[in-house]
Write a protein that binds this DNA or RNA. Structure first.
Length: 723
DNA sequence: CGAAAGGCTCTTTTT
DNA sequence: GAGCCTTTCG
């Protein structure tokens, strides 16, 4: 197969320009992913470059995986030898390999935001600073930003311009010590320390420079300073660096991503070839025109000429509904229409929103009407308490120095070890000049003469230590799944959840985590645990998005970057939501909101809906928001409107007329049930009817499904069978 | 020590 | 509305 076949001239140029630096500015839908993949294939197949010498950085693990799959089809040579992944994943690998030069223990654990906050709180406590005056999350932000600029605590302190920054500097200093004491690294450390490693150790730097002769960076507009620094360190010598990005899709400035990297690239690599990919293969002319009109509202940008040979397609539908419930209902009914009356499948549709909180109303509607959906991140799976608890057990088993995890689990489930005991333990550890974990060991071994604890607490601490030691021993022998089961069992966590009615759902989350652990079951004992822990910390929620099940996708606009769907619904097109309230007083942020909207619209291939609610519940309050300013930028001839509800007085009317015109026409007769009936549902399986009531010409049943929980279903929609 | 209740704050987006 | 913290009581 000819690798260059089917590429347009610009794409071809982008694939073939393998010598020297290249900047590819790729509009949405311009075949960017294809170009990157073909480029790697071209390097390997046509130019005889060993995959060993290629590093490809992607934005998510999912993108990396997909690229591997595509490459496997294009080239037969060991794709495994490619270095591919997110910056964080690649850096973690480098630091485990060579971090010892910086005094980094190769068995470090990775701390996420949550762990960072715990650690910062601990620092504040030690430094006698009030967490109310010095918000831990604000400090975390500052530290994170500093690290993204490769500023260490000493430098930060000399630069401090305000009292708060001085506080941050002091916390930062202690924080880094504690990170080290815990044999941990946080997300930002992964990047910063790698840069420091390569900067200060010429031998190691040369080694990496000589290995990676070709560098490829996707989503370059969303890289930050450390990341760019890293690219320059590794690729600065041979200069075969290819970066791909679209300034109009830069939406991560809050994560310190810096658009200036794109400008910087042209300055740092003046010989760079700049290639524009402007032909769009994804969307209809209408969608592209809408997107262009929206993005042209930004002042700080270079104009671009996007064009497409695709057909004009349908107009966009702009909808006003009364509130977010009705908004969700509209989405459901419209999806249903698309699926029934046209050639769309559920999986062709995606609903996008600005904030995660917006998913709730949508989810409720999808459940109510029994329409299958997949939620990319509600409360994110790996951030759930129970999931983090079990991970903390495993982390502590792997790394006895991980004090953050120890604190998390020592009294969960309750073992009578409270705040006082912990601070006693802490001072005891200090007086012994060791950490808490070691102190526990000494206590269990009876090596401590003056015990500050009463016998009941001493017993409790000792049995905790024994349990951990046992698990730690086992972790070297048994498979990860076995270890997992022992952890949930021996820790009492299983009983803790399963004895509690409310714990059932949480227990199921743990079982879900177990299936993730299973994937690492093949690996020999200690490696399986390590690989699992690393995988689990560096995942993104989109990573788990699978395309195989036919269901509507609910996703944030940020997560939607890089994806495409035939039909896209953007909800919450209101001032304060999109654009978000927080951007009102900052023009730069407002431009980012606009880009976010642009990203959303350009995900659509055929049909786009822009929906807003007249009223919306936000943070407890009920607000009336103006339509989003972005809607005003769309030419009238490109849109049709629907469902306009002018004012509150007309609501009652509107809602009743809505019900009449809605598509939820009973397809069959409404079945009758009574409480206690056993029923079956295509998606939720078997269950029992809890309650049943008729509503107008429909009926609503509340059903408790086995192993799933209680769901409210509208019977004209959800097919429920009596069994 | 832990459970329950009440009060407080902060609410964007995520590797 | 949720999560976090503090207070209070058993």
């Amino acid at each position: 197969m000819n690798i260059l076949a089917g590429l347009n001239p610009a794409q071809k140029e982008a694939v073939e320009a393998i010598k020297g630096p290249v900047l590819i500015l790729a509009g949405p839908g311009s075949g960017k992913t294809r170009v990157i993949t073909q480029r790697v294939a071209y390097l390997v197949k046509e130019c005889g470059v060993s995959p060993r010498h290629i590093m490809a950085v992607t934005f998510t693990n999912k993108a990396a995986r997909e690229m591997t799959e595509r490459l496997n089809k294009l080239v037969s040579t060991a794709v495994k030898q490619l270095t591919m992944g997110t910056f964080h994943a690649i850096c973690a690998r480098i630091l485990r390999q060579d971090g010892e030069a910086l005094g980094i223990d190769p068995h470090f654990v990775i701390y996420d935001d949550d762990d960072q906050i715990s650690l910062i709180k601990k620092c504040l406590q030690e430094l006698n600073l009030d967490p109310k005056q010095n918000s831990p999350s604000a400090i975390q932000n500052k530290i994170s930003f500093a690290k993204s600029q490769v500023i260490d605590p000493q430098e930060y302190l000399t630069r401090a311009r305000s009292y708060f920054e001085e506080v941050v500097g002091r916390v930062y200093e202690r924080y880094q010590q504690m990170i080290k004491e815990n044999t941990a690294l946080d997300f930002d450390d992964l990047l910063m320390q790698t840069v420091q490693l390569l900067k200060n150790h010429p031998k190691i730097r040369t080694q990496y420079q000589e290995r990676y002769l070709h560098l490829l960076v996707d989503e370059f507009q969303d890289t930050n300073m450390v990341q760019y620094e890293l690219i320059k360190l590794i690729g600065g010598k041979h200069r075969n660096i290819c970066v791909v990005g679209d300034p109009d899709q830069s939406i991560y400035s809050w994560r310190s991503a810096d658009l200036r990297n794109i400008l910087g690239f042209e300055k740092d690599f003046p010989e760079a070839k700049v290639i524009l990919l402007e032909q769009n293969y994804r969307s209809t002319k209408t969608i592209l025109a809408i997107a262009t009109n929206i993005i042209e509202g930004n002042k700080e940008r270079k104009p671009k000429d996007l064009w497409t040979e695709n057909e004009a397609g349908e107009k966009a539908t702009i909808v006003e509904t009364y509130n977010e419930q009705e908004e969700a209902q509209f989405v459901v009914s419209e999806v249903d229409k698309l699926v029934r009356a046209r050639h769309f499948q559920l999986g062709d549709c995606a609903v996008m929103y600005r904030t995660n909180a917006q998913s709730r109303a949508l989810e409720e509607a999808f459940i109510r009407y029994g329409l299958p959906y997949k939620l990319v991140a509600g409360t994110r799976f790996y951030e759930r308490k129970e999931v983090k608890d079990i991970i903390a057990y495993l982390r502590y088993i792997q790394n006895p120095n991980d004090g953050v995890s120890l604190h998390r689990i020592i009294n969960v489930p309750g073992r009578g070890i409270g705040q006082r005991t912990l601070s006693e333990l802490n001072s005891l550890a200090k007086s012994l000049n060791t950490n808490e974990s070691e102190t526990l060991q000494m206590m269990a071994a009876g090596k401590i003469e003056k015990m500050p604890f009463n016998s009941r607490i001493a017993q409790s601490l000792a049995s905790f230590t024994t349990m951990i030691n046992e698990l730690r021993e086992k972790s070297k022998e048994v498979s990860l799944t076995e270890l997992f089961d022992m952890v949930t069992e021996n820790s009492g966590y299983k009983d803790f959840l399963t004895n509690d009615k409310e714990g059932e759902e949480r227990w199921e989350n743990i079982l879900e985590l177990r299936t993730v652990a299973k994937e690492y079951g093949e690996l020999p004992p200690p490696t399986g645990l390590a690989a699992f822990l690393e995988g689990v910390t560096l995942v993104a929620d989109v990573d788990s998005l699978d395309g195989s099940t036919d269901a509507v996708t609910l996703i944030t606009l940020h997560q939607a970057k890089g994806l495409e769907y035939p039909a896209v619904f953007i909800v919450g097109m209101e001032e304060g939501v999109l654009p978000h309230l927080r951007s009102f007083d900052d023009p730069a942020q407002m431009e980012e909101e606009r880009r976010l909207c642009y990203v959303g619209v350009t995900r659509a291939k055929q049909k786009v809906y822009l929906i807003r609610a007249f009223r919306r519940n936000l943070m407890g309050g009920n607000l009336v928001n103006e339509p989003s300013r972005f809607l005003k930028d769309i030419p009238k001839e490109l849109i049709v409107t629907a469902g306009t509800i002018a004012n509150e007085e007309s609501i009652a009317n509107a809602i009743s007329s809505w019900n009449k015109t809605a598509v939820f026409e009973p397809t069959t007769e409404i079945p009758e049930f009574k409480a206690g009936d056993r029923v079956k549902h295509a998606r939720f399986g078997e269950g029992m009817v809890v309650s049943y009531q008729t509503i107008k010409n429909d009926a609503e049943a509340v059903v408790a499904f086995n192993g799933i929980g209680v769901k409210k279903l509208l019977l004209s929609f959800a097919k429920l069978e009596k069994i």
